[in-house]
Design a protein around this nucleic acid. Structure first.
Lengths: 244, 244
DNA sequence: CGTTATTTGTGCGTATGTATT
DNA sequence: AAATACATACGCACAAATAAC
């Protein structure tokens, strides 16, 4: 894998961390480009490159003549999930840890939500960590004809840890690419399993996100139900109109 | 008033247009950095800057040694999800009931999130009902220069009930239309005020949605914080990509 | 199987413009 | 008016991945 992280990435990671820790809360200005360049012994261009990523992620905004500021966000883990690619790229800064390996099960409710004829589905349970801290437990259900492509994937074995997403693992094997993800977001109490995986008390209010991925023909390909710890995670989405 | 567009933006706009027209469909490679630099008589760095935006938007992906390709072998990208229109049309089957009329206040946090110079903002608090049942309490903050257009609107007086949205009331008065709504969604306990307005116990877990509306120039126009009763409301959004 | 050309990635330096304080 | 801070743009060098030979 990667041996040396680029300098601009090292810097953007550090800034991301500091912002997440709340160091620049309350409208506090971030260090200037010149300051960061001097302190980290890199060029101003490299600092700018790091800031460009942070701006694209929406975690800072910049004002000529004034400086750079963190967007207000309670210091939670902030992730822009405004496109299907965003969902797939969740892997770039989080780790997936399999709690219960992918295997066939009978699940009437999941099968019905996937609009299947049978009650047979494959499911896998995993949690995701950011900076070593678990923040979400997800259960994924797959129709049999899709699950068979990844049933032997080492990434989905018990206890496996990797930087993947299910949808990213699936995509190469699908005849028809995923084009739609319908999501519903609500609040639900943590079950014993959710509590154990995310380190909170049973009954703790969680952000519950249900996603149904479908292909261009409208066939359901994956159902995912996630319980996010609200203390460590905020769901973000940007709506646009007028062609962008 | 208007300044000349930066070279990298002119280039990225042209590429966006061409990609949307399907010129690079079917895995066709886009021109190389060197080609574009020569053809447009700009430096390679400027071409790279243009590509960085397209990559951040998820419109293209790049592979070292191979080239740049449009995402979606099959067409243009639709980053459109739930729409701002959906938010504005919330009024069709719900009623807005003003709890606390629009008036000027000092609010450091809201002003900072609206990126204002002063601490002076206008705010209004209202709840929304569906079939006579309250399901959400919303506080809206407006910059002074925007609030003055609606300060005397009867819809925002104390106790007023109507089938409107704030953004719908504002839109006709704005120089520049709202084009973006950045939302963060999390869980929060009901305050006494929220509990009273929605008929639940204080401390009850609520779905908290923060929306920051901005115009095409990126200027913040409205900040709204809503507390939804999860028993009566689920947030839905659909992400799509790839037309036809 | 290595060599070479192509193409993108990283990093630095410099200069100039524009917005804010 | 001057200093500060971000924005744009060009140039160069070298690294790394890929593909063609």
């Amino acid at each position: 894998m990667n041996v040396t992280e680029p300098a601009h990435r090292i810097l953007s990671n550090e800034l991301r961390r500091r912002i997440a820790e709340g160091e620049y809360r309350g409208g506090l200005r971030l260090p200037t480009e010149a300051e960061l360049a001097g302190r980290h012994d890199v060029s101003r261009q490299t600092v700018r490159r790091a800031f460009q990523d942070l701006v694209a992620e929406g975690i800072v905004y910049r004002v000529p003549g004034r400086g750079t500021f963190a967007t207000e966000s309670d210091g939670r883990y902030l992730r822009q999930l405004g496109s299907i690619e965003d969902l797939m790229n969740l892997s770039t800064d989080t780790t997936m840890e399999v709690v219960s390996a992918l295997r066939r099960r009978v699940d009437v409710e999941a099968a019905s939500r996937l609009r299947l004829e049978t009650d047979l589905v494959d499911s896998v349970v995993f949690r995701r960590l950011h900076d070593g801290v678990p923040f979400v437990l997800t259960t994924v259900w797959l129709p049999e004809h899709i699950a068979r492509h990844v049933r032997d994937a080492p990434e989905l074995a018990d206890g496996a840890a990797s930087a993947h997403t299910i949808i990213g693992l699936l995509e190469p094997h699908l005849e028809s690419p995923i084009t739609e993800a319908a999501q519903s977001i609500t609040v639900a109490a943590a079950s014993a399993e959710v509590a154990a995986a995310t380190g909170c008390e049973p009954g703790h209010p969680m952000l519950r996100v249900d996603r149904l991925y479908s292909d261009a023909q409208g066939r359901a390909a994956e159902l995912a139900v996630s319980y996010f710890l609200p203390e460590h995670y905020t769901y973000r989405v940007t709506l646009r109109r007028g062609g962008h």
